[in-house]
Measured scan of single mutants.
Amino acid sequence: HNLTITQGKLFFHYNPKLCLSEIHKMEEVSGTKGRQERNDIALKTNGDQASCENELLKFSYIRTSFDKILLRWEPYWPPDFRDLLGFMLFYKEAPYQNVTEFDGQDACGSNSWTVVDIDPPLRSNDPKSQNHPGWLMRGLKPWTQYAIFVKTLVTFSDERRTYGAKSDIIYVQTDATNPSVPLDPISVSNSSSQIILKWKPPSDPNGNITHYLVFWERQAEDSELFELDYCLKGLKLPSRTWSPPFESEDSQKHNQSEYEDSAGECCSCPKTDSQILKELEESSFRKTFEDYLHNVVFVPRKTSSGTGAEDPRPSRKRRSLGDVGNVTVAVPTVAAFPNTSSTSVPTSPEEHRPFEKVVNKESLVISGLRHFTGYRIELQACNQDTPEERCSVAAYVSARTMPEAKADDIVGPVTHEIFENNVVHLMWQEPKEPNGLIVLYEVSYRRYGDEELHLCVSRKHFALERGCRLRGLSPGNYSVRIRATSLAGNGSWTEPTYFYVTDYLDVPSNIA
């Protein structure tokens, strides 16, 4: 807008934040220059609390790290170098490059900038070799853009010569660093050979998330399962459950009422301010606690030095998902009996873990797994792929695949051998790939016309006998059925096997 004052003059007093240069501009645009008398524009009460600059400061050096910015700028000295009290560095987070010096300023003089007072450097006698002032900004957020400017702080001049310097606002972004852990990993099994893994992005990506790394490792069953005799009275049979499938998407929606109208769909109840505040506090606490764990609990591995020492970490090797089922080394339970199943799973520490690289999504279907087997899954978020990966501390989750139908069934015939004193040795093959492992066998036998009897055969007993022995049988026709019990439950009964026990007292003698 054009402003013209045809008559009258300007009068400025007691404006401590208004620089004289701005008042002189007002004289020019209003056409009143030359009308004012000496005392109409006070030299001592206008701009006496402001830094009124008329020179431009330029930054000469900028260096960044993930949490620091090192700045240096060209030296500046007023005509009387004693008038320079120091520099004021202003900075704040700036997602967009549209910041002005006066953003967030209120009537009390406060604003949204963080201000650092910096002492002037030592003055050199040689004007050509003056030290460049600077400042190291610490405690910054990774991968965050900051708006920065600097200006001088000078003393009051009796001659009211307006001098000083100020830089333009520059924008500097800190470097990326390792992201925080992925949030809320959930693993479920939808079949006997697959596990579905879902997660949420890290709360602090500290860069642009480029991919996720998912490692999985087959877990050995508890050692007590191999040692305890679950045929003993009072000892509860062990059981394991597989990871249940995901709930429906509708039930997972946030901010939804727990109660549904019987007449149909209901609208979600909005969260109160107290609920939102509580969630923010919980989120802040979780982030602080995660940072504490990362800094205190997890110790970084030592990389190899120039002395030739090897990095103890196993090298990563990509495998196809079809090879995942046989990740671990199978060892027989008892070496003397080769027909026992290889369900003991000690994992070799030198073995390469299978892994998958996930790009542009937060889910993965891990296939080719062994049925009813526990897996430990390790999830890392990465925001750099080359020249070397920059990934987060791992988040861990466990899951067990679903049982395989008929995996616990005894394959092959049940054979028998009759000894003296009416002892019958029953023999059968253990299931080759049971659900988890076989903890015991149930032997059901009966003599024709009598009630059915049951015998429990422990895992250890089966390994020693290759089956079991029935003792003290009365003469007669017998039928026997056997079924295995694994961590997933009972298998199917075998087809009945028949044998006849004679009275050993009636056996004919070869003595003449």
Rank of each mutant, 00 (worst) to 15 (best):
Q275C: 07
T386L: 15
T502I: 03
F337W: 10
N339S: 11
D291R: 08
E442G: 08
Y478R: 00
E452M: 08
A330M: 11
L225I: 10
R483M: 14
D385H: 11
D273A: 14
L293A: 14
F462V: 06
S315P: 10
S392Y: 02
F289P: 07
A335H: 10
P332F: 15
E247C: 08
G234Q: 09
L293S: 04
Q275D: 07
Y504Q: 13
R400A: 07
L232F: 13
W216R: 08
E417M: 05
A488D: 02
L455S: 11
K278H: 02
G412Q: 11
I410M: 04
Y478F: 05
T343F: 08
P270V: 10
I482Q: 03
N422A: 15
E351P: 11
V359G: 09
T415P: 02
V393H: 13
E442Q: 06
P205F: 14
V423G: 15
A309S: 13
A394G: 15
A463P: 04
V414K: 01
S243D: 08
F419C: 14
T288R: 06
R481C: 04
F337E: 10
I418V: 10
S341T: 09
E282R: 10
S262P: 12
C267L: 03
P245D: 13
Y259R: 09
F289C: 03
T494D: 00
E258P: 12
G207E: 02
R390N: 12
I209E: 08
P338W: 11
A381L: 02
P349Q: 02
S486R: 02
T401D: 00
T401M: 01
N326A: 12
G234V: 11
A488P: 02
G234R: 12
Q252S: 13
T502C: 08
S251D: 12
I276R: 05
F372P: 00
R316E: 09
N477I: 05
D503P: 15
L237Y: 03
E417N: 03
R376E: 04
L379M: 08
M402S: 15
Q219L: 13
L470P: 01
A484V: 05
E310K: 01
E282I: 13
V296Q: 11
F215T: 05
T401S: 05
S203C: 15
W493R: 03
L473D: 00
S284P: 04
V329Q: 07
T303Y: 15
R446H: 13
S492C: 06
G436N: 03
V439L: 10
S363D: 06
I438L: 08
S262L: 10
H352F: 14
F215Q: 11
P403I: 12
E356I: 12
E433Q: 07
H425F: 15
H254M: 08
S367F: 07
R471P: 09
P338I: 11
Q256L: 13
Q219K: 08
S341C: 10
E281R: 10
P403R: 07
S363F: 08
E265A: 14
G368R: 09
A263N: 15
L237V: 07
E221H: 15
G368V: 04
T415N: 03
E451M: 14
I418T: 12
S203F: 13
N208M: 07
Y441W: 00
L379V: 06
N326W: 02
P387L: 09
I366V: 12
S315T: 14
Q380L: 12
N206A: 14
T494M: 04
Y292L: 06
E417H: 03
E417Y: 03
E351Y: 15
C382R: 00
L232N: 14
E249K: 14
N422M: 04
R376V: 06
S239E: 09
I438T: 11
E451H: 15
I377L: 13
A263S: 12
M427I: 11
P332N: 04
V424C: 08
L464H: 14
T502R: 10
D506M: 09
P346I: 15
R353S: 12
V480M: 10
R286S: 08
F246N: 14
L426A: 01
S305R: 11
A220E: 15
P403D: 06
R313Y: 09
H425D: 04
S262T: 10
D503K: 12
L505G: 13
F289S: 06
N435Q: 01
L440F: 08
Y396S: 13
T494Y: 02
E265S: 07
F246A: 03
F246C: 09
N490D: 03
K317T: 09
A405F: 12
T307I: 02
N510W: 07
E221M: 15
V501T: 04
D204T: 03
E247V: 12
E279T: 11
V327W: 15
T415F: 07
G308M: 15
F499V: 12
I276V: 07
V329A: 03
F337H: 07
R353E: 08
G234H: 09
T347V: 03
E388K: 08
C231F: 03
M402W: 10
H461L: 10
Q219V: 06
T272P: 12
N326H: 13
I366Y: 01
F499G: 00
E465C: 07
S248I: 12
